[in-house]
Design a binder for these strands. Structure first.
Lengths: 233, 233
DNA sequence: TTATGATTCAAACAACCGTTTGAAACGAGC
DNA sequence: GCTCGTTTCAAACGGTTGTTTGAATCATAA
């Protein structure tokens, strides 16, 4: 067997399984997606998942690794580019947001090669209850999150460190809902939601993220009530 | 049988099932939580779920309805109070945010009666793939979302209507991650995340939401600091 | 006490789950 | 031609799923 032909065979059914699993996971979740559904859509034999990946859990990890590794590299490269451009000076907040979330939205805009599907899946998985999935995500983000946190710390020196991390987390949530949420929004507001255009989404989301990221801290003068009828409820 | 005793029996095991299901759904998701797990934790017979609720799907709906109806009523009441106070004038954005998200965070702060558990579950369910759950959520929100949208429209007359809805959606995502996310954050940043204090969360989240909600629209002059470094934090 | 309707219970139901198996089919090297 | 490692295939594995059943148990009303 030539080496190339060998790999072709491998990757052919492997990719078909990964594609089928990815889209089915988005629509039904991990648990509710059976291996028979996956192999059925992929047009391959039931046993081939265990043959190529070993188990269903290993398949899930491969679904993520296939795209997430590349995505995080792109995020870091974007940050590298801005930092090289800044020549040692702290980046501006909008550059950091652009490096992380802009790249993410760019991937979410790719509807043809499955980037959109994957980003929807990824957004929902941050809050995934399953232990091994969350631990796997933690490993994938172990290097990228501290890099962005440090960049934000330098960019916003007056903001306490843990505040930065929380706001990063808030931004992550807003983005996940924004991507996964064409459905959820259409769901809550039964009328038209015309624009699924990815560039329009970016134009909407980025100002929101920056506005939240740079918002004045609570306890700074505040807004009129603060302790008045703040939580009248 | 007296009417009261009859109902007592009903609600006793009913409530135990609902409590057990709620906490198990948060930890394992709907599909991965079996009826035997639920009845086992509740200390009731396996068949009692089908006896009291009819099916597992109906149980899921009851888990939500038990708290969501009340939550949405509180949200509307808070809005009513602010509007009565304003005597016809448009509300300020922070009041609207307070009415919706402040009430939500207030429920999430209740760790003793399960409010915290439920809000974590609710946050993850907005992006839930299962069709019938999402449709159910849509019905529950059918009245409250338009009310808040209209209040926001009056409060921010310069912002286009669909922009408002998107930003409401972004805020929803940020809050969901904030509540569900003590785990996710601890996951991405392996070091300490000392404050789970609900009031501290409110102090962090609310400025972020308001900053995002009131952020200048894209296409306005651009990012080159808009008003100097007005909100440089 | 007896009769009655509401709950609880142990047991079983068919259907599906993820995984394993051993044989069949395949393609490349001798 | 034949051989050998890789991949595919149909079939079955034990176990779990949500649901149903019919008898046992309970509390009340007569």
């Amino acid at each position: 067997m030539t080496r190339t032909a060998d790999l072709r065979q491998h990757t052919d059914t492997r990719e078909r399984i990964l594609d089928a699993a990815e889209s089915l996971f988005v629509d039904h979740g991990f648990e509710a997606t059976s291996m028979r559904m996956i192999t059925g859509r992929a047009g391959v034999n039931l046993a081939s998942i265990n043959y190529h990946f070993g188990s269903k859990d290993a398949l899930i990890q491969n679904v993520f690794r296939r795209r997430l590794t590349w995505l995080n590299q792109e995020r870091l490269h974007a940050l590298d580019r801005f930092e090289a451009e800044a020549k040692g000076a702290p980046l501006k907040p909008h550059q950091i947001v652009e490096a992380f979330f802009g790249v993410s939205l760019c991937m979410a805009a790719d509807t043809e090669r499955g980037g959109h599907t994957f980003m929807r899946l990824l957004g929902r998985t941050y809050t995934e209850p399953t232990a091994f999935v969350r631990q796997f995500l933690a490993e994938e983000y172990a290097v990228v999150v501290p890099r962005f946190k440090q960049a934000l710390l330098r960019s916003l020196p007056d903001v306490p460190p843990d505040e930065i991390l929380w706001r990063f987390h808030f931004m992550l949530g807003a983005m996940s809902y924004a991507i996964a949420g064409t459905d959820a929004l259409q769901l809550m507001a039964e009328y038209e939601l015309e624009e699924t255009d990815p560039e329009a989404l970016s134009r909407r989301l980025m100002p929101f993220l920056l506005g939240g990221l740079r918002a004045p801290l609570a306890g700074h003068a505040g807004k009129a009530k603060e302790k008045g009828s703040r939580r009248a409820v």
